[in-house]
Computed example of a mutant assay.
Amino acid sequence: MTKRYCYACDLKEDAQLIAEYKAYHAEGNAWPEITKSIKDAGIVDMQIYLTGNRMFMIMEVDETFDAEKKAKMDADNTIVQEWENLMWNYQQELPWAKDGEKWIALEQIFQL
């Protein structure tokens, strides 16, 4: 049984930066340590969609996933921290984000 989480984050409104960000996330370009850390946390599928400078991430997780555990794993992983710092060159907080909050959980308001 999987569970789905959806998040949003903005990129800086700069065509060159958006193109670079997309290149980092093109198939095969994400650092292998990053994809390993994602899978090790119980995330079985992750997709990011972009419109303008707004991104939406959809995560499918298995029963082993725990958001707090994932945050601690990320904080303790120097490669993940390097990646996150690099990505902050491209990303910006949503206007309603808490200080330092990057990806904001989306509220599901409809299901067919």
Rank of each mutant, 00 (worst) to 15 (best):
E101P: 12
H25E: 01
L11P: 02
R54I: 10
H25W: 01
L94P: 10
Y90C: 15
E84H: 10
G100T: 00
M87Y: 13
Y5V: 00
I58M: 12
M73S: 06
A8Y: 02
D14L: 04
M46T: 05
K36S: 07
E101N: 13
R54K: 15
E60V: 05
W83K: 12
P95D: 15
V44S: 08
E13D: 14
E84A: 12
D10K: 07
C9P: 00
Y49M: 01
E27I: 01
D45W: 08
F110L: 00
T64D: 08
L50H: 04
I34M: 05
Y90W: 10
D66G: 08
F56E: 05
W83L: 09
W83N: 11
N77E: 06
Y7C: 02
Q91C: 01
K69V: 06
D62P: 07
Y7P: 03
M59C: 04
T64Q: 13
D99A: 15
D99Y: 14
M55F: 03
F56T: 13
W88I: 09
E82R: 10
M73D: 08
Q16K: 02
S37Y: 07
T51H: 13
N29V: 04
W96G: 03
A105E: 04
W88D: 12
Y49G: 01
T78N: 13
L50S: 03
E33V: 02
A23N: 12
M73R: 05
I38V: 14
I18K: 13
S37N: 13
M59F: 03
E93G: 11
K70S: 00
R54W: 10
I43K: 08
T64C: 06
W103F: 14
E63K: 07
E93P: 08
A15M: 07
D40K: 14
W88R: 12
R4W: 04
I43C: 07
Q111G: 03
L50Q: 07
I34H: 04
D99Q: 15
Y90A: 15
Y49H: 04
V61W: 01
E33G: 11
K12E: 07
Y49V: 01
Q16A: 08
A75T: 07
E13T: 14
K69M: 04
E84F: 06
M55C: 12
M57G: 10
F110S: 00
A67G: 09
P95S: 15
A15F: 06
Q111R: 04
M57S: 09
L50E: 05
D66H: 11
E60G: 00
W83I: 11
V61K: 07
D14R: 07
M1E: 07
Q111T: 02
I58F: 12
M55Q: 09
A75S: 13
E101Q: 15
M73A: 10
E20M: 13
I34E: 00
Q81W: 11
V61H: 03
K70F: 01
L50M: 09
E68I: 03
W88E: 10
N85I: 11
N77P: 01
W96F: 14
A26E: 04
D62R: 08
K22D: 08
E33Y: 04
I38S: 02
V61D: 01
K12M: 12
C9N: 00
D45Q: 12
Q91E: 09
L86P: 03
A26R: 07
Q108C: 01
A75Y: 06
I104Q: 04
M57F: 05
I109C: 09
N53K: 13
M87S: 14
T35Y: 03
K72N: 09
E60R: 10
C6R: 00
K3L: 00
Y5K: 02
I58C: 06
A26Q: 08
